[in-house]
Nucleic acid binder design. Structure first.
Lengths: 145, 145
DNA sequence: CTTCTAGTTAAAGTTAACTCTAATCCTAGC
DNA sequence: GCTAGGATTAGAGTTAACTTTAACTAGAAG
């Protein structure tokens, strides 16, 4: 084989370790068009550092709520070049705005969860009266719901 | 029927509106043992304000990453009374600790997503050189990955 | 040469959390 | 009394995102 050796090349197993995904998941992502690994002369996939950067970014997008479908669309636009930058910006902004709302809700849930733990602890060590149920307790803290 | 009318009673459709869930989802949650609505004399479900509080709390737990299975366990312990408070506290603390980590990762993803948007905008209006790709840009900002 | 490990494929299976269907029943308004 | 809307049930179907299976090949180690 005469592949260039200037960059690191990962076979699928190693790349799985690097990215934290499994080999089947990498093949699945490929089938969905999210990543296009190179091939050695005898047909084995290999991935480069650039592929690693892309997967890491993709996983960030995924964790902010983007679905595989949306990522697919993003990849298509990316492949179409600079003429689709506006579309990509719009998509990312949408994702960001949605995430912003969910994030705020998650913070609220975090508060409630901690309130519940405090309430349990107060109950156990007697700082909170038996008569005060959790929703009364929340009202006292001014934490609605 | 001779049900007490001292508290508000919701039929399943109204309760769905109150909680933001659908009627089928409420029946599903019931089948899973997450909620036990009362019944009118002729067999219709009805829900009270207490049930609403419980569902709201349950949804908070769910959004912090608790699965239906875990919620089921929580409900079982809750029904067993004060002797299981320690178990419930341990479960909630587990959930909280896990959520704390995920929350930190989400914040990081949020940062990267915003960096990407800034990078796109810098590219579009020429503030960022064509030669600087996104991973270089992240390094410059000292935002790893 | 055999065995082990890691790769290949297409396609079927899994899991969580709903969501829908079908057949039936109850209730309120005209 | 009739009809429309919403209730009941058991059980089948859906969706997203993997995950596993089966059947195979290629290369390295002993």
């Amino acid at each position: 084989m005469d592949t260039k050796t200037s960059e690191i090349q990962y076979r699928i197993g190693d790349f799985a370790e690097v990215t934290g995904l499994s080999s089947p998941t990498l093949r699945y992502y490929e089938k969905e068009g999210l990543i296009k690994p190179h091939r050695t002369d005898n047909g084995l996939r290999y991935y480069t550092e650039q592929d690693a950067n892309w997967i890491k970014f993709l996983l960030h997008l995924k964790s902010t709520g983007m679905t595989i479908e949306q990522l697919k669309q993003y990849v298509i636009w990316r492949a179409e070049g600079d003429s689709t930058i506006d579309k990509r910006i719009a998509l990312l902004q949408d994702v960001r705005d949605n995430f912003e709302k969910e994030f705020a809700e998650l913070q609220h849930s975090w508060t409630i969860l901690n309130d519940k733990l405090d309430w349990y602890k107060g109950k156990v060590n007697g700082h909170i009266e038996d008569s005060e149920d959790f929703s009364k307790y929340l009202k006292r803290l001014n934490h609605h719901e």
